[in-house]
């Protein structure tokens, strides 16, 4: 008995525990997964927006997945300003071309990356957005310039269905 040998009983115990663990896991998973977005929520995952009425220099805010999305039609000066910023000056370096494929249209999630408030339009030190909660300043490309937010405002997945319609999501 001095030598430790795997016995039939050890095998049975291990096998029982293993089956039990799988069973418990399979039982608990539905209880956890039920809190994930359900089919009706996923069905709302994309929104189509008609932007024909938006004139240059205007921003509209639409709701997508329960969050605001800013759609700004930028003026030529604004585009020029956004492109002129050097990447070294940025906390989260991103080129404006990468953020706005069609430079006239900036489509971006209107949620401050600090703690989730909605920034105010055309406010702040950089003529972009300003978050009233904790004072983050964003430029006209939605990039963080000053304040506690760690990253630029997020660009959602979107596409132009035709010249007047943007499909977000």
């Amino acid at each position: 008995m001095s030598e430790k040998k795997t016995k039939r009983r050890d095998f049975l115990f291990t096998a029982t525990y293993a089956v039990g663990a799988v069973g418990v896991g399979a039982t608990i998973w539905p209880m956890i997964d039920q809190m994930n977005p359900d089919a009706s929520v996923k069905a709302l995952a994309s929104t189509e927006v008609n932007v024909s009425t938006v004139t240059p220099g205007k921003t509209i805010t639409v709701l997508w997945r329960g969050k605001p999305v800013f759609i700004r039609r930028r003026t030529q000066e604004e585009i020029a300003e956004a492109k002129s910023v050097k990447l070294e000056e940025l906390k989260h370096p991103e080129k404006d071309e990468d953020r706005a494929k069609n430079p006239e249209w900036l489509v971006m999630l209107g949620v401050c990356t600090h703690l989730g408030c909605v920034p105010l339009d055309q406010k702040g030190d950089y003529n972009g957005w300003f978050c009233p909660c904790h004072g983050s300043h964003y430029d006209i490309s939605g990039r963080i310039r000053k304040g506690p937010a760690p990253t630029n405002m997020e660009i959602p997945k979107y596409e132009f269905v035709d010249t007047n319609t943007i499909k977000i999501g």
Partner: peptide, 13 residues
């Protein structure tokens, strides 16, 4: 019915 059709594993629960 939403629980039965939409919620993940709602039918089971």
């Amino acid at each position: 019915e939403h629980i039965m059709r939409d919620v993940n594993y709602g039918w089971l629960i």
